[in-house]
Design a protein around this nucleic acid. Structure first.
Length: 232
DNA sequence: AAGTCGGACAACCGCACATTT
DNA sequence: CAAATGTGCGGTTGTCCGACT
């Protein structure tokens, strides 16, 4: 199954290893991870994959999360829970690891983001001229060819209300999320009406939105995103 | 100035799923 | 159909570094 770990390097990647990895990706392309360790890179294929997907991939956006990204992240987490890859798929340039780390850092500990007296090295960006314009819309990983419109209007609605003050932002986001069930229920309700004639039906319409974990295994995320799109 | 604390993030690990043989 | 292999994902850990004492 997994490659034997004897003799394979672990820990922080060096610039030389990064360079070797990039050469391998250039040659074999993404997805041929088992080829990489054969190119003089003494790392297991999984490590190579992670390094590329989480750090070296040119599509990755570094730096602070913008306010609309945070807003979207909160909404998506409410809906999807810890499906970090799905959430990341809706945040262009962000990886599942990024999203996961950000969530745990800022929200996972039930910590008020501003209650600390320390000035942290990273902040939630709340500028009114956020990068939302540059961000455009999130793409569907499974529909990466043409992408799809994602929550953009809802996000803009939120953005228009986001304050430059962290406390206000946090409270606002919380209040927004408190209304998420209503919004979600409404979304499902609309879909039910739209599908009343017998077209594709969602399997989650009976679910309380606070208990997504108990969702039917038949739950189809693509249907969910189509609902998102239809709503936005 | 030095030591400590804690946040942020990169990387590791184990498991599950998909694909191939 | 079952085993082997490859890949993806989420949870956890380790390290770095800035802020504080």
């Amino acid at each position: 199954m997994e490659a034997p770990s004897e003799g394979l390097r672990k820990g922080v990647w060096t610039a030389e290893e990064d360079s070797l990895l990039k050469q391998c990706i250039d040659k074999y392309g993404e997805g041929k991870w088992h080829q990489v360790p054969t190119r003089g890179l003494n790392r297991c294929c999984k490590s190579c994959r992670e390094r590329w997907l989480n750090y070296m991939n040119p599509n990755i956006k570094r730096g602070e999360f913008t306010s609309d990204e945070v807003d979207l992240l909160l909404r998506l987490h409410k809906l999807l829970r810890n499906r970090w890859s799905l959430i990341a798929g809706r945040l262009p340039g962000r990886t599942a690891n990024d999203v996961k780390n950000y969530w745990k850092t800022h929200f996972g500990k039930k910590k008020e983001p501003c209650c600390t007296s320390r000035t942290r090295k990273r902040y939630i960006t709340c500028s009114s001229d956020s990068q939302s314009q540059d961000l455009g819309v999130a793409k569907c990983p499974s529909q990466s060819n043409n992408g799809c419109s994602q929550l953009s209007e809802q996000t803009e609605v939120c953005l228009s209300q986001v304050s430059n003050v962290d406390e206000e932002k946090y409270e606002f986001l919380n209040s927004e999320m408190d209304g998420e069930c209503t919004w979600w229920d409404s979304l499902l309700e609309q879909n039910q009406v739209a599908n009343a004639e017998g077209s594709v039906a969602t399997t989650i319409n009976e679910e309380d939105c606070t208990s997504m974990d108990s969702m039917s295994p038949m739950f189809d995320t693509e249907q969910l995103w189509s609902l998102f799109n239809a709503e936005g």
